[in-house]
Design a protein around this nucleic acid. Sequence first.
DNA 1: TAATGGGGGTTTTTT
DNA 2: ACCCCCATTA
Length: 679
Amino acid sequence: MFASRQQLNERQTEAASFGDGPLRVLAGPGTGKTTTLSARVEFLLERGVAPDRILLLTFTRRSAREIIGRVRALRRDEQVQMVSGGTFHSVAHHTLRRHHSAVGLPEGFGVLDQVDSADLLDLVRSDLGILSGKRRLPKKSTLAALYSRTVNTGVPLKDVMSDMTPWCVEHCDDIASLFRAFIVRKQLLGLLDFDDLLLFWRIAVQHEVLGERLGAAFDHVLVDEFQDVNLLQLDILRALRQRDPRLTLVGDDAQAIYGFRGASPRYLLDAEQYFDGLTTITLNANYRSSTPILDVANALAADAPEGFCAVLREHVPTAGAVPPALIHCVDERQQSAVVADRVLELYEQGIALQRQAVLFRAAHHSADLEIELARRHIPYIKYGGLRYLEAAHVKDLLSAFRLVDNPRDEMAWFRLFQLMPGVGPAKARRAIDALRDSDGMLPLSMEEISRRWAHVSDVLPSETGEMARGLIESLGSTSDEPLVVHADRLRHAIAPLIIAAYDDSIPRLEDLGALVLACSDATRLSDVAAAQALDPPASTGNLAGPPMVDEDWLVLSTVHSAKGLEFDAVHVIHAADGNFPSDMSLATPEGLEEERRLFYVAVTRARRDLAIYVPLRYHHHRVRDEHSWAQPSRFLSESVRSTLLEVVAAGEASAGDADSPPIVIDSFGAVSNQISQLW
DNA sequence: TAATGGGGGTTTTTT
DNA sequence: ACCCCCATTA
């Protein structure tokens, strides 16, 4: 009998204590999916399975943190700390680091994030001299998306292109040769991009000897949010479980929202085709949302042409439930004001800011609201959108980290050279060429780089000489020097370059100090760089807002980043057609259905309070006073509206009138400012 | 020949 | 923040 059994219902208990065969748990939102999964881990541990022989896989960093946190909370002993797990990409990364020589990777291989990988594609494109000058060329980010989609789905490039970029199918052959050269180049430079992590992991697990060892390393494999799996990831799982049926898949087809990266809910629904002897348990008793909120969710589900698998059934009786609201606003400014008002009203009713979330389709949808929140001194954290890692100076220092372990990393050299004053793409390229040997390869050791440095100095403008020499000296590691000390030497060497290159260098230099501290318990600097690429700090504070010392803050999040989470109160903003559903997704029926599921995910995050906001007028910022009228989201159908209390936000007055803010707002700001002085 | 700065327009979602 | 284009400067 395991500890948390009494908290589980019959079906959950059945799933948690299921035997050894492959198990599929179909579980709607709020039905205790994560609880059941962590209870299953606990059950396995109590049955004597060693924690490091349990592998827990997820698709997003946030759900990885959530589920691992839940499992750790179950038991405090240090054993549980050792349950293996993380996102597919991070587990791939760890596996490849450990078995790098078996798969022919250099020990200090680098990891390219999305932007790096697009930049490298662009570099290879100009080297090849193809795909330039012709009209209607794909942008580098489009090329990166095509490459990624192709390898993740296993669909031929030509078909991917006629689906995604029909307007440039004529360049298919050029793009194919670009991709081939891209693959060769990554190998020469000792670099893997996010897709390569999975591709190399698949190679490893499919190998007859290594694959068997990797599969035998785990007694049980559990996968959360399995509706987000793509073919490449499915292949990896099948290979991992080739000789062992102990696999648990948990998912909900109604929450499949990662079609754009090649995922398909078919793999969940047809799982019996891939895993012999599959048993299915369905959870549909909802423990999260109030009855009126479930009614909204079920009405949305009923509008889906093909229906959703698990229709939610109410379980917990909800007394005093609040009717979900559909709030029409004059425009975006008023929406921001009304959201802020409502957030504070709920706060006064005792719902802490952290238990409230504002959800939106696209990261930039919160821009206006963020201004309003800053004006009213309401602290918030935003998930999704701009990343700390994407800040240029962070990538500059990480490039240096990468070079320490892998001097062949041309991408990193290219970046650092261009940081020097008077050096652009052309001189950076010549500087790199000056480092090459006769085969065109870069040296493998930093000592050899130092020896050739004189040639580089000839290419660089003379005023960069000292900075450049300082940098190259800091790249060499001294034996028995702690990693943090080396990292700090690099920071020190790069600082003058940062000061020269950026106007606002002071806050940037502070960030770099934090990055150096992240090296404290690492074994290699390239590891730190890879870990930062795979798991950058999730949120960005607002520089203009209050300092982040407040104990409570409102959550702003894209719907994608909010999946798997729940909040007492949820505010869904910009529920206007074109924004939600996004008009970028309307080209295909599948795109629309994915948007519908996304909307379903948004409303099912709410426990007791739900509000959906529709601005009716959108101002075009380019031309003054120009505006257009928005249609409410098509997901707000007659039957969905019948589950919502329609409200028209009163007054034309938009939130810009700083002279008459409600009193409660000022007191909130004052209080929060006062406590922030206390530490 | 290159680098840089200014200006104007855009921006789906994540590893 | 990024992209693209254009004018100016070294």
